[in-house]
Amino acid sequence: MISVTELYALFMALSLSLMMILIFVTYMFMRKTMFVSIETVTGKAITVLKCPYCSYTIRRVFREGDHVGAVAQEKCPIHDANLIVSEIYTETPSSE
């Protein structure tokens, strides 16, 4: 036989845990909007060099002063011509 006080304790415990669950769910829901901070993801820049006479291409890390159309120091093994920067890009896509 359960006494009245015991019953009330049970009832209170039940409703309190319900409230806790509610608060927890609200927190989980709000976390998405509250705690997403601003962060800038900048991928590593890659420079693509191309021979002006054939399809010989190499890729290397971006160096200061590189720009598309610039003449690089590297040379084509077949034509002995200086390679030209044809593309500069990053392989990490920007934050989606």
């Binding site: 900048t42 991928g43 593309e87 890009y89 990053t90 920007s94």
Partner: peptide, 9 residues
Amino acid sequence: LTLMTKDIA
């Protein structure tokens, strides 16, 4: 507005 990605190149 940010560094060109490979897809775009």
